[in-house]
Design a protein around this nucleic acid. Structure first.
Lengths: 344, 344
DNA sequence: TTGTACGCGTTATCAC
DNA sequence: GTGATAACGCGTACAA
């Protein structure tokens, strides 16, 4: 058994067809007689043919590659998104070249160059570092997820609605004061909507609220310390009142919950807590925690749909380019667990 | 600005060199005079050249691709491993084609065929479905991680030592009875060592112990229910005794901890708990939980080292193949948190 | 329905 | 130090 690879040439020789016919067998089998199809099929087995997609790309330009750049896979949000993206292989057949960016523009530019060198047909960008305007200048189909997206197609959670849902649930829980804990976030990233939705809902229902937009620090331990402090302050400040806490994500919500449980041995009835993301920690918490669930599967699916549409368009002789980027929004789902209860 | 790609041909014309010289500029620049290097460098800028790695692969066979098949990215262990693997790009320059397997042999075989079609130089296999013997038959460098590995190179945590460390820590905590909760696991997968290490340590120190190898169910909720039941049983059975619990992983450990905290408002002093993995939940738990930490960064790094060595070997004219698979073992680290305390 | 001839962009071999 | 020329394996007009 030789080490050399079997090529169309070999199969052609073996079957007394031409290379072209072999090629057609793969790309347009109906143009061959059934009998000849069988002959070739048998030859493939006899010779143990293995396809070579690299040669294919060079010949027709279609790599079936999609590049993905993700900030990290430490956060469950990103790893689960990547999981869903990779799963789309079964549906669309695109393969994924994945880079884990580390928040450095220069490095991510190199990643993009690498990807382009491999003839990727499209790109999904989760990392935040490179402005959408620059991304759009690469002139390949790109979809961004939950980041600044002025010049690129994007799929995002409806953060505004999420903020409203959170406030609404706390409202139904008869909270006396609604408090949203978040970091200061730029207005042009989707997550800003959480704050706005929360505030608008409070204003609309005429609810007293407080916005705590603090620097929570950059490490897990730092976050924990700041939230511990917040917990103690709020506990004093609003003694006797029912506090409805809306945390920017489930990790923060869990920290807050843990503080309170360690203080009181359980979650006191004058506290209600809701997080954001529906990440595992929300259900794994000592008291399963209510949250605004991001539909990561739907987001990933929508992103691929948009991307595939454009990649297909590119394959036509007269591709019509988008004149406006598409921005799709996925509705979050309110997940009510034990840290809130609906009062009937 | 034309849409066609700039090739060596174009650069050659522009600079009055030949394609060969342009190629040399990239692959062996020292063979050109400094002046000519500069001329070409300038031409690259003038013409805005973008490299085409696909053509390169076809010409020299080196794809710089490594295939990765991972069971899922839902579990933090896998996503963090992938994170570390991807990070090795900076060190080795290999790009990663990633598939998320779903525990189906037929499907994963298709993944492998896809990968081979793209001329991957090597593969990292985290998924369990395909036997190592079959993997070895593909005749490309492969490293498996934490799975059956009789016929392939592998990197694994020293599970046996981990089991001993866990038992040792509980022993130092003066526990009256040591209990290991795990699922029944086959002897030929590395994780079996956790059980063996635990048992051997108990036997060695002449400690009373109990092995609970149960079917914990397949869903998170099912796990939770079974562990709840176990907690209640143990609480009764060993009343008054100090119980040292070693759970198979941090998720189980967290479930157990949560049960106890919900029963008692905190972790009673007659309980000690230790998990395995050092996954985020162990530090995010209501009481930060002791654990046997897997050094995922080191595992990923070791895997790439082994892989790169063999991929390089392949590029020599007279590659010497391994006669025996390499099995590397990474020591876990004992991480002592609040659910155990060393008694002085 | 099938075949011929050339192109895809780079590297490798051999010559000068 | 530099240049022709032939691979690499497949797709695709165009022709038959």
């Amino acid at each position: 058994m030789s080490n050399k690879k079997v090529t169309f040439e070999d199969i052609a020789r073996y079957t007394n067809f031409s290379k072209t016919t072999i090629s057609r067998y793969f790309n347009n089998p109906d143009s061959l007689t059934l009998k000849n199809q069988e002959i070739i099929a048998q030859a493939l087995i006899d010779l143990n043919y293995k396809e070579n997609k690299v040669a294919k790309i060079l010949a027709n330009g279609k790599s079936e590659f999609v590049g993905v750049i993700v900030p990290n896979l430490y956060l469950h949000y990103y790893s689960e998104m990547l999981n869903q993206i990779l799963s789309s292989y079964e549906k669309f057949g695109y393969k994924f070249l994945v880079f884990a960016g580390n928040a450095n523009e220069a490095i991510e530019r190199r990643y993009i160059q690498e990807l382009l060198a491999y003839n990727i047909e499209g790109m999904i960008m989760l990392s935040h570092t490179i402005p959408s305007q620059e991304l759009s200048s690469y002139h390949i189909p790109i979809v961004t997820i939950e980041r600044e997206d002025q010049y690129t197609c994007s799929v995002n959670t409806d953060n505004y609605m999420g903020g409203m849902q959170a406030a609404g649930l706390l409202y139904k829980n008869n909270c006396d004061i609604l408090i949203h804990i978040n970091v200061r976030v730029s207005e042009n990233v989707p997550a800003y909507g959480r704050i706005k939705g929360f505030v608008d809902a409070c204003t609309e229902h005429d609810l007293p609220y407080e916005l705590l937009l603090e620097d929570l620090g950059n490490t897990y331990e730092a976050n924990k310390k700041v939230i511990q402090q917040l917990a103690e302050n709020l506990d004093k400040k609003y003694k006797g009142k029912r506090k409805g806490l809306f945390l920017a994500n489930d990790t923060y919500a869990n920290m807050m919950l843990n503080c309170l449980v360690r203080m009181y041995g359980s979650l006191p009835d004058d506290y209600r807590i809701i997080g954001f993301d529906n990440s595992p920690i929300s259900s794994e918490a000592v008291i399963p925690t209510s949250t605004i669930g991001q539909q990561i599967d739907k987001i990933a699916d929508a992103a691929m749909e948009i991307l595939v549409d454009q990649m297909n368009e590119r394959k036509k002789r007269r591709p019509l380019l988008l004149n406006e980027p598409i921005h799709k929004v996925i509705t979050p789902v309110l997940i009510s667990r034990e840290t809130t209860k609906r009062t009937p």
